[in-house]
Structure formats: structure tokens, C-alpha cells
């Protein structure tokens, strides 16, 4: 099985667990999607910051619609799976859901190694649980 690695805007570092999750990566890419950035409300300042960040990363940058570009890249590289980073962002999750490919989401290193408490609302309810992990290296108890 060969994998296409799609790095999106929330996981922009080479040490992200995403890069070690595949034994058969074909290519790692970032898609510069103007319409997506406009929908997120990103102005010039943010876009320059993002491009500067990409300069140091082991990814090829393509410009275009994210779904169409990823589809085309998967076809050219004959990737059967797409690896990408987990995100709460519904726009990115919708893109993942719309791809005609198997998608594997790789989680960021946890800040606190605890499951999400049900019905989160006020910070201190979260903090009362999280503080048992937060002061330990790697957030483990």
C-alpha cells in the first residue's frame, strides 16, 4: 500500500507524527487553496506567514482546489491511501470526507493523555481533570 501524505495548515512541522505514520509514502504535499483561505478569512499577513513556514517543510506545494488536486495527485502517484492530521476543523474534515480514497487521520501529540470529557462547557471542569496530567512530561499520568 502506498500513501499520499497531505499536510494541512494545522500540522505544519516535520516532526508531526504524520510523517512517521507511513511505511510507504509516495509524496508529501501541501495544497495552497485560495478559496479555502478566503473562506477561513485569511488576509495577506497570515498567508505570508504560512508560505514562509512551508519553505522549511519536506512537502511539495501545489496550488488549486484541495479536493481536485489531491485526487489528481493520488492518481498520478498511484497512492491507495491518504494520510493526514486529525483536526476539529469541519472544513478540513469535509474535504477528507469527500475524497474517493481511504483516509487515515494521525493525531497530534496529546497535551494531556486523557479522553475528551463529555459535554465540555466551562474550563474549570476540564481543568480539574486535566491538571492531573498537564504537569507531567508528555501529559501522561
Amino acid at each position: 500500500m502506498s500513501d499520499l501524505i497531505w499536510l494541512h495548515e494545522e500540522a505544519l512541522r516535520a516532526s508531526h507524527p504524520l510523517f512517521s505514520a507511513s511505511s510507504a509514502p509516495t509524496q508529501s504535499v501541501f495544497i495552497w487553496d485560495d478559496a479555502y483561505m478566503a473562506a477561513m478569512g485569511y488576509g495577506l499577513k497570515r498567508r505570508v506567514f504560512l508560505y514562509e513556514t512551508l519553505l522549511e517543510l519536506p512537502v511539495d506545494i501545489y496550488a488549486g482546489d484541495t479536493i481536485e488536486t489531491l485526487k489528481a495527485l493520488a492518481e498520478t502517484s498511484q497512492a491507495s491511501r491518504l494520510l493526514t492530521a486529525t483536526t476539529p476543523n469541519p472544513q478540513l474534515n469535509d474535504i477528507m470526507g469527500a475524497l474517493p480514497l481511504e483516509v487515515t487521520r494521525v493525531a497530534e501529540d496529546a497535551f494531556v493523555e486523557m479522553p475528551n470529557p463529555e459535554g465540555l462547557r466551562r474550563f474549570f471542569k476540564y481543568w480539574n481533570k486535566a491538571k492531573k496530567f498537564a504537569f507531567q512530561p508528555n501529559g501522561t499520568r
Binding site: E9, E10, A11, L12, R13, H16, F49, L50, T53, A85, E108, D109, A110, F111, A134, F135, P137, N138, G139
Partner: peptide, 15 residues
Amino acid sequence: RHGILSLNEVRNLAL
């Protein structure tokens, strides 16, 4: 914000 640094590594250094 963009995952360039992880919260985990920032916390580990702060410790």
C-alpha cells in the same frame, strides 16, 4: 496555532 510547535513540546520545555 499552525502546529509548527506542539503544545506538548512547549509544556515539556516549561517544566
